[in-house]
Design a protein around this nucleic acid. Sequence first.
DNA 1: ATAATAGACTAGCAATTATTAGTTTTTTTC
DNA 2: GAAAAAAACTAATAATTGCTAGTCTATTAT
Lengths: 200, 200
Amino acid sequence: MPLIGLKLKVVNQRTRKTEILEVAAELFREKGYSASTMRDIADRVGIEAASLYNHIKSKEELLTDICFAIGNMFVPEMRQVIANKESTLSKIQYLINLHIDITTQHAAMVSVANNEWRHIKEPKLSEFLQMRDNYETCFKDIIEIGIRKGELKNIDSTTSLYTILSSFRWLQYWYKPDRDSPVDQIKRDISELLLKGIKK
Amino acid sequence: MPLIGLKLKVVNQRTRKTEILEVAAELFREKGYSASTMRDIADRVGIEAASLYNHIKSKEELLTDICFAIGNMFVPEMRQVIANKESTLSKIQYLINLHIDITTQHAAMVSVANNEWRHIKEPKLSEFLQMRDNYETCFKDIIEIGIRKGELKNIDSTTSLYTILSSFRWLQYWYKPDRDSPVDQIKRDISELLLKGIKK
DNA sequence: ATAATAGACTAGCAATTATTAGTTTTTTTC
DNA sequence: GAAAAAAACTAATAATTGCTAGTCTATTAT
């Protein structure tokens, strides 16, 4: 059994499943998880609903895979940010850019991870929420250290954290690369607003 | 036919329907519109599913009523803000407070209006989106006038608008009156952040 | 008291759902 | 080109959905 052949097979499975995953993410974003049927997904892929089960285990697996794929993009980055010995402001600047990059590059999946995670079943749900909670706690710690070091204003850290995290949400719905400003401009504008405000 | 009697009847219908509406809003927030069944709603009200139809026309009517109830809280306020001859900053300050007030007072309904409106059917859907679009355009105009008058920084108005509007979203999920800071403190913190930034 | 109304109930229907079983076709491997 | 594996198909199932029909009961109006 040649390794080349095996490799090719694996790669092919991957791309097919990836296609289904992308279609599902787009549909879940448009109609929500519950309102999206396996027939909807199959139609868009161009096969019968039953054929999907040659590639995936269940509808819920699609949702879980999408949510964890996004989660796993943030987790290692946060680990690195915490390890670095930079200023609080450059850490926050980095995280703002990270959120904008991931959201603009994977808008549909980010939307699903943000809005449809409730439909994940246990025990995966707890795992997902713990991952999210851990990320938020790390972010909050960075803010609190920044306040103590005098780099940030003494605004309630919970309010700061969630206001900042929420403020990116519009990107997943509204940002269209062709219509809106280029990503770099968006990054500068949002950073300016969050760090220094809109007031002149 | 005495008017008093008629009045009493109407009032009774109102409170019963209001109860169903509130239960529905809470459920739609928790599980989403599609995943919430009429049996779920009925269970929580304490009656049978079929009995709901003595008070409402359809499941979709619940959703539509919720979304328009919230929309109608914002529309007249925006009309007033535009009519007033105050500074841009105090207009924006007023709108920030308005969003925080409505969101903290009607968290479930705001959440539904923000996240479940896609399931409204035409022609009501277009009506709702036009109302929202009109509100956003008015808000954007205020920002653009502020920039021209030199009150605001020259940040892209679309980016400013949606970043500000998104930044309140966490309140509908996270804000618990007993746990978090009082509303007045939240208003001060969020205003400080959006107007002048977190940087010291 | 009688009539009317509001609002609950039971029963059930037609449509839709995710998923399975079993089969056939297509692609890949050697 | 034969064998094996991948991936499509058809058909069907059990469960769930929003909603209707028809009935019963308690309250209200006159």
